[in-house]
Design a protein around this nucleic acid. Structure first.
Lengths: 345, 345
DNA sequence: TTGAAAGCGATACCAG
DNA sequence: CTGGTATCGCTTTCAA
């Protein structure tokens, strides 16, 4: 029915072994022979049987990229960068099947996808976004990552803390530093009543950004301000902003744990009759392209997402012990856009 | 090194065949035996060898979802819906590896990803987003889809026209109707000088939306207005809006081929000193959650992306000749938000 | 530089 | 309900 290697071999008048060698290109084959084999491949419209190949070679060309929310451009940018580094057209050697898996932020699905990728004997796995800080899940995850690396799958963490003794390589963002600088900026403008919309509880990104924020407050001799937790999405930002206003109507600034949340907060403020930034300033985190000019008043810590993604992709593909350029923390750049203002009065 | 089915069989004191039957669950096995096998699986921490399994069964549990731009929430929403229908936790039976592949809108990469998925003997492939109308590429694509369906891979097109004789099932959006209604709405308000920012040339979505727009103009006895083409992204909308203003400074409305483009256009208008919608009204297409409240003046044809994605997922999983509920065109809903205005004067 | 043949690890058919 | 085993299509020594 379907064309096999043997068919190609027969047609090219060579042995299956030779066809395999031509196809994999990592073995000397006479130019003429290669020519004939390639012609036969073309004429028969032959497509390699991946499972058979993976079974025999005990290795596949599948690379998985795990993201917390595929509808969030934050992850889209990173995943796209990883893929363009690894997948078709990528520079990291040829035609790997680089695929994105959406965990939806669920710990179970995170583990399930890793198992699925382990089943496929994935070549590499890139896990992006903040990790969940639940002891049980962390153990399960660490165990799984260790088994993956043991089996030869390279594991790269991008945007979450290192996982010691698992063989996974980590590329982290400076979330604490970013949170701190964002708040220092607002303090510098004179803001004292600052509300904070945090991400979901038990997430490393949530905790680190909040710690940076509070460190800045503490350094200025101020107590913690009002804080509301919620998912990293727009509607959560909307609700949280209203809640913050309810708790403290005199707020002059709101820091949001990411840009999607910040946009939701802006919408809420507008609906509540507050002007941005004249009445309330808003600050965000991350680097969503659309936030740049839809909400001119936004102050943001801009994370080099594309670069980080590309770097993670390169690390995933590297077969060296040490990834190229070593592993580092990515620092965000503070961007003040439009008219972030000092408090009135 | 790694644990195999045979190891599990030995430990459970049964034959490999029995272990396989327990694991696949589609064959009667005595409760006690099953128990023992599952315990052995657990104790040995056994993970199925996907390639071996796929080879033997000549079928895999891989489902590919192709998108044009993974950083665009339009595709993120659809892809997420497909995944949640098919992947871990999805209702469509168990643990398939539903993965997203980013073509970046490139025809070559589209074909390459399909080949890669064909290699893996993918169970199903969902291709989302507008198609490129280049004869050569269309032929190559049709041929590839036919080979995929011949090999037993179910192919579902979501948001692009049917591909006759390929065995692919199509779920289409009513782009013409949407473009028409959007324009009719503006005409109804009294707008006569309407600029149009179209998507990339040679895309079905671009053409159909533009056709609907022009049909509405023609029905009102008006000639085609100014049109500028560009990619489906924000910066393209920004540039195109400026170009439209340059060509016709008296424009009172702009229709954009999608919401990302519309947001860019809004930014450009603002930078050019035009007020929205008092000076110029803006209309978009699609359903980006953030556009709902970041640009209150926007009028949009809202496509039920999530539903379409979920439906496409169900079709992909269906093994019937006819997909559940038949195949249909998805109609968008016209949403007039905030203060889309009549032209001044 | 090329060929022959032994696996890789699971599935599914055929017996029992 | 369970076991034996041929088979899937490719990779990779080992020889020639």
């Amino acid at each position: 029915m379907t064309v096999t290697l043997a068919d190609v071999a027969a047609r090219a008048q060579v042995s299956p072994a030779t066809v395999s060698r031509v196809l994999n290109g990592n073995y000397p084959v006479a130019a003429g022979t290669r020519e004939r084999v390639l012609r036969a491949v073309d004429e028969l419209d032959y497509v390699l049987n991946g499972p058979a190949s993976s079974l025999a070679a005990s290795a596949s060309d599948l690379v998985g990229i795990l993201v917390n929310d595929i509808a969030d451009p934050f992850f889209g940018i990173m995943a796209g960068a990883v893929q363009s580094e690894i997948g078709p057209g990528g520079r990291a050697g040829g035609e790997r099947l680089a695929v994105v898996c959406n965990t939806g932020g669920s710990p179970e699905r995170e583990l399930t996808y890793l198992t699925l990728l382990q089943r496929q004997r994935a070549d590499a796995v890139v896990i992006t976004g903040g990790a969940i800080e639940d002891a049980e899940h962390m153990n399960a995850l660490a165990a799984k990552m260790e088994r993956l690396t043991d089996a030869g799958t390279r594991v790269v963490l991008c945007g979450r803390p290192p996982a010691p003794d698992t063989g996974a390589v980590a590329l982290t963002f400076d979330n604490r530093g970013g949170g701190r600088r964002l708040t220092e900026h607002l303090l510098g403008l004179g803001h004292r009543a600052i509300g904070y919309i945090a991400g979901p509880e038990e997430r490393t990104t949530t905790r680190h950004r909040l710690e940076g924020h509070r460190a800045a407050l503490a350094a200025a001799g101020l107590p913690d301000g009002e804080t509301v937790h919620g998912p990293y999405d727009r509607s959560s930002g909307y609700d949280a902003a209203l809640e913050l206003l309810r708790r403290d109507p005199s707020l002059t600034a709101i820091v949001a744990a990411n840009d999607s949340v910040a946009l939701g907060a802006c919408a809420a403020l507008r609906d509540a009759g507050r002007r941005i930034p004249d009445d309330v300033s808003v600050a965000g985190f991350d680097d969503l392209p659309f936030s740049i000019d839809t909400v001119p008043a936004l102050t943001t810590v801009r994370l080099p997402l594309y670069e980080a993604g590309a770097r993670a992709g390169r690390i995933a593909m590297s077969r060296e012990k040490e990834p190229p350029g070593g592993v580092a923390t990515v620092h965000g750049e503070l961007m003040v856009r439009g008219s972030t203002a000092a408090p009135r009065g």
